[in-house]
């Protein structure tokens, strides 16, 4: 793997009285898909939110493209090239699909060629272009959320459990789209609980538990090592299946 794009070292995050991240060290290399696994409450979503500046790290540092972004405000972090698809998708249900997309394009009007490509990846974004986003189904909302993140080219996309609660057919569609997205020069940091999906597109993998990273390495290595899977799966995926 190449140079690190994003690096977290010793990140601690407190939410109110709770100490959620307890020294997270995580390196996301440039290019490809990095997967963050872990059971519910391990701190995966908090890690993404801390990177985005939606929670502020109480100690430790986060560097992105060599720049310290630990204390930067969310809008500045976003404009430095990081897009975020939160767990709840963050769709503006009061707005139409088109308006959701327009707001996501911060650099000017949406590039028609790019839009055509996105609509190819996620046909509902075309079908329901002028519908209120509130009327979309869960899977369609998820597609819109990812589309919004890639409406302009981004350096890094943080995606929080894009397959959560979706039907298998839609999970496959989402996986295909992310695979295609991987071919562009965008890096993806994916939080997942679905190991089948994660292993099919992940290049590297890190496993979290109790607010710390307890394993990290290549995905291929983890897929091959049944014993490691057993040990980590038992820990990380017991909540799932």
């Amino acid at each position: 793997m190449s140079e690190p794009l994003l690096q977290l070292s010793g990140v601690h995050t407190h939410i109110g009285p709770y100490h959620i991240l307890q020294g997270v060290d995580l390196t996301v290399p440039k290019g490809g898909v990095s997967v963050l696994l872990g059971r519910n409450g391990a701190g995966k979503s908090t890690t993404l939110r801390t990177i985005m500046g939606l929670w502020t790290a109480s100690s430790g540092s986060i560097t992105f493209q060599g720049r310290d972004i630990t204390r930067m405000e969310t809008p500045a972090i976003s404009r430095s090239g990081i897009a975020f698809v939160p767990e709840n998708m963050g769709i503006f249900t009061d707005l139409t699909v088109a308006e959701n997309m327009t707001l996501a394009a911060t650099k000017g009007p949406i590039d028609p060629k790019r839009l055509a490509w996105i609509q190819e990846l996620f046909p509902p974004v075309r079908t329901f272009w002028n519908s209120s986003a509130g009327t979309l189904s869960g899977g369609q909302k998820q597609m819109l959320a990812v589309s919004r993140a890639i409406v302009e080219s981004r350096v890094l996309i943080l995606i929080d459990e894009p397959t959560k609660g979706l039907a298998p057919a839609i999970i496959n569609a989402m996986t295909d789209a992310l695979k295609e997205l991987k071919e562009t020069d965008t890096t993806i940091l994916l939080v997942e609980q679905n190991f089948a999906m994660a292993s099919s597109i992940g290049d590297t993998v890190a496993v979290m538990d109790d607010g710390r990273i307890i394993h990290d390495g290549d995905m291929a290595e983890m897929v091959a090592d049944k014993e490691l899977q057993e040990r980590l799966m038992g820990l990380s995926l017991e909540a799932h299946q």
Binding site: L54, P75, S78, F92, L103
Partner: peptide, 24 residues
Amino acid sequence: TRIGLLVRAGVENGEMVEALGYRV
């Protein structure tokens, strides 16, 4: 208008508006 869209989006989910790069 874009400002209006931002206001409506912000009413629903200000955090996401920030994550899209706007200063709420």
